[in-house]
């Protein structure tokens, strides 16, 4: 049961400069939409103290953690200096307006 591309929803369901959450077998995954429309998927835990990044403020291709303001790069998951740490990212692609995440679990999908 290797990783599969899984349909998690439509592009327009993610608010611009915002995020939505997915519950997965791996824990929560946050899907972000930047101001320019690019989408990113990351595990929803800040490298600092596991703050929920989905609740943070999105600007450029970064999100500012709501707990102590670490700034996390959405593409790489890396914390911006002077802070140091990394949140795992999840591969994401869009096909015909549908968001697909590359996740290990093949069983899907409850839309909500």
């Amino acid at each position: 049961m290797g990783p599969h591309w899984i349909n998690v929803g439509r592009v327009e369901e993610i608010p611009p400069l915002g995020a939505r959450l997915i519950d997965s077998g791996q824990g929560q995954i946050a899907v972000f939409k930047a101001g320019d429309g690019s989408l990113f998927a990351l595990h929803n835990g800040c490298p600092h103290r596991q703050g929920p990044l989905s609740e943070g403020l999105v600007s450029g291709h970064t999100v500012t953690c709501p707990l102590h303001n670490w700034v996390i790069d959405l593409a790489s998951g890396e914390a911006r200096a002077p802070d140091n740490g990394c949140t795992p990212t999840v591969p994401l692609k869009v096909v015909d307006g549908t968001i697909l995440l590359h996740l290990p679990d093949p069983r899907a999908v409850v839309s909500g």
Partner: peptide
Amino acid sequence: AHEFNRLCQVG
């Protein structure tokens, strides 16, 4: 409403 609802559940 999107703030309080999950996009979906996987697995």
